[in-house]
Nucleic acid binder design. Structure first.
Lengths: 162, 162
DNA sequence: ATTGAAATTGTGTGGAC
DNA sequence: GTCCACACAATTTCAAT
């Protein structure tokens, strides 16, 4: 299943229709039993397991995980926070990233090239919490030049094929 | 496990330490066996299963899924595309969102309140593909006023607690 | 809610095509 | 690469606490 080479020298996986269908089924439910997957794909359970393991081992599947709904846990408000680092503090960007990743409420962090240096995707209880988050974690940080916060009205995941 | 009410009238789940630990373990590996989870939590398998089912049924876990590494599949370049909709075309925003979500390469879509109306997170093969994506799907769309594309150097998921 | 025990179901290996 | 068969392991139900 691995037979190419990508730009950074790493392996590039070549998927066939079975692999793609398996990824699709696992995206919808990563906890489905191997037997059930095999049955829907019309292949033997052992074959399905071999495919699944190959997808994991080759790194196509980087992890099996869950999506937690922040709303159900009382985090009613999501926001994107655009952050610019001070020109004199660019060397602190890697540190900044790792610090922010572990803060409660942070769901994703993008390290960008362009006008803004970072985008933080956060989920918090209310607007007071997002204000507090920015004050405590960003404005207070001497490496941060400016921030701009936008409310997230809706967030969805792509359904495009692999 | 469900005993609150949130702002939009929906139920708010109240988690205990066991629930939180379970979510953490499942985030790291949603395919771990129930037995293994139960053992690490120090509870009976049947208890662990009841907790897991409760988290799913209450909507705390919205789905069990996989993370697919776009790089391994030859999509070496990720970008955020910031989109503004024309003032006269605001009524088309919902349509626009559902159209974009299914395009190949689209991983996430944020519907924002603020300067930009949408942020698209895309993963494509190379810079030529991102250019093509913008031309075909955005510039060509009469509802779109402007776009701005930023390269994603790094993308990580928050590790903050629940 | 949590448990242990029991019946059902799934997993993963080895050998053959 | 795919399959079947088999030994082992995990899941899930249920009565009891």
């Amino acid at each position: 299943m691995l037979n190419g080479t990508n730009a950074s020298g790493g392996p590039t996986a070549q998927l066939d229709d079975l692999d793609r269908k398996l990824l699709e089924l696992l995206s919808k439910n990563s906890r489905r039993t191997n037997n059930s997957l095999a049955e829907e794909l019309g292949i033997a359970a052992s074959t399905c397991l071999a495919r699944l393991n190959a997808l994991r081992d080759s790194g196509v599947i980087s992890r099996f995980t869950i999506e937690v709904d922040p709303q159900v846990l009382g985090r009613e408000l999501e926001a994107l926070i655009f952050v610019r680092i001070r020109p004199g503090a660019r060397h602190l960007m890697a540190n900044f990233a790792t610090q922010m990743r572990d803060k409660p409420g942070v769901r994703q962090l993008f390290f960008l090239g362009g006008a803004d240096d970072f985008v933080l995707h956060v989920a918090v209880r209310n607007s007071s919490d997002v204000r507090q988050f920015v004050l405590d974690n960003l404005s207070a940080n001497p490496a941060v030049a400016t921030t701009q916060t936008s409310l997230v009205f809706e967030h969805s995941h792509g359904t495009g094929e692999f």
